[in-house]
Design a protein around this nucleic acid. Sequence first.
DNA 1: CGTATAATATTAATATATCACTTTAGAATG
DNA 2: CATTCTAAAGTGATATATTAATATTATACG
Lengths: 256, 256
Amino acid sequence: MKKVATTQDEGGLASATARRTVAPMPSVRPTRRAVTVASTIYRDLRSEIVSLKRKPGEPIAEKQIAEAYGVSRTPVREAVLKLADEGLIEIFPQSGTFVSRIPLDALPEAFAIRKALEEATVRYAAERATRSQIAMLRANLELQREMQETANYQGFHQADETFHALVAEIAGYPGFWTLIQQTKVQIDRYRLLTLPVRGRIAEVIAEHTAIVEALAANDAVAAIMALDAHLDDLQISVDDVRASYPRYFTAPGDPA
Amino acid sequence: MKKVATTQDEGGLASATARRTVAPMPSVRPTRRAVTVASTIYRDLRSEIVSLKRKPGEPIAEKQIAEAYGVSRTPVREAVLKLADEGLIEIFPQSGTFVSRIPLDALPEAFAIRKALEEATVRYAAERATRSQIAMLRANLELQREMQETANYQGFHQADETFHALVAEIAGYPGFWTLIQQTKVQIDRYRLLTLPVRGRIAEVIAEHTAIVEALAANDAVAAIMALDAHLDDLQISVDDVRASYPRYFTAPGDPA
DNA sequence: CGTATAATATTAATATATCACTTTAGAATG
DNA sequence: CATTCTAAAGTGATATATTAATATTATACG
């Protein structure tokens, strides 16, 4: 039944087995999950989906991707499964794999989660922020203004994300931002689809500035209020959008 | 039966080849990700790790698990990768895979995340709770008391989890609880290891009752206070525990 | 001409095989 | 006896093949 490596196996079964019964105790482990083909494909695919380069509802052909990368389907599958866990890809067994439609009815909840998590970060940050950390935030604000002046929308978005990450780091809980990013994905796709780089940058910077001032004053309440104002501006108007891109969304109450 | 839009693709350009250029439009999809071997193994493994049946640091032999289930290594690998994403398993390339040690230094942050999310749920729940929903909570409290009387700790834990899930559902955001459960995993392992079924059940029920009363009165502030008291009681005393089970934890500052 | 049915093909899910690397035990050497 | 080198075995990562189920297409029948 089982043909192991053709060589002699030591007859005593119990005695020989214990090769590594116990764990690798804390030593300098090299790299955990190094850059592998699967991780590369994962990153690429994710980026293409979030940037809407791959449209919601579009089929995903594992074989084709595998050929494009010159690899087998195994690493592709690993990436696809991971994306399916994140809700960016939907797998219908024996039918096909597709880029997820944006679950409109789940967006308000995702937004509420983001709000809850970010409020916590600004509260902690207001309590703990040091002068040097406030200075880092101000430096980031300056960067945002530069991006505005040079009309570098891509760069502004990057700086915007860094701003929120910084707040979480100042709060002492960088993991908050990691989690926020995960829950934010569908919202990002939605916003990218609905408002094509609206000129709201000036307002966003003003709102960011208000948050920083509140943090600098160690005023948690004011910081939360400023954050709420910031987030509410990004709020969602689910209504009439579905009409324009009906096939990009799942109807409320349809599939979960 | 359902003959929906068979062969009408709107863009009449490449009419010939494209077999499925566009997506499966919302119809009653049978099962997405049905019960598969991989999902079964995933659930089993996860349960064994969370229940500490598999000790932190213990090696995981893919081949052995595959043989135990009578399957190949592929579905096992799928399950292992998913668990690695959750942080329950650590994969060291070309070395081995092991049950994760409990990351002590990450526990405070996980706890803060849980607190932020649960506070949000009780706030929303206090605003929205209907009388029938309050009644459901009271029924759950009764169930908790029954479990206490029959000394059914397993059942109590189950009811406890249901209580928090109910609160999230009343808040209108059941996804909050899903997320909380994910972040809670390492904390659960820690608590299972440190306090073996302490007789805190009576206090827990009292705290749960206080939360329900505040929700019934639509008093968000009181509800949050009651929740904080509840969670603070579960708080972590990271200090002296590491001494007793040193190999079950990762040192602060060690590997992330 | 429309509907039901059978044939076909696509694809997810799983099985099996191979490769590369690392760890570790044993042999050879000083 | 200690140290270093070498070979074996285990494991992760990837490749290739097979199976089973579904949807699509073609075909036959009313």
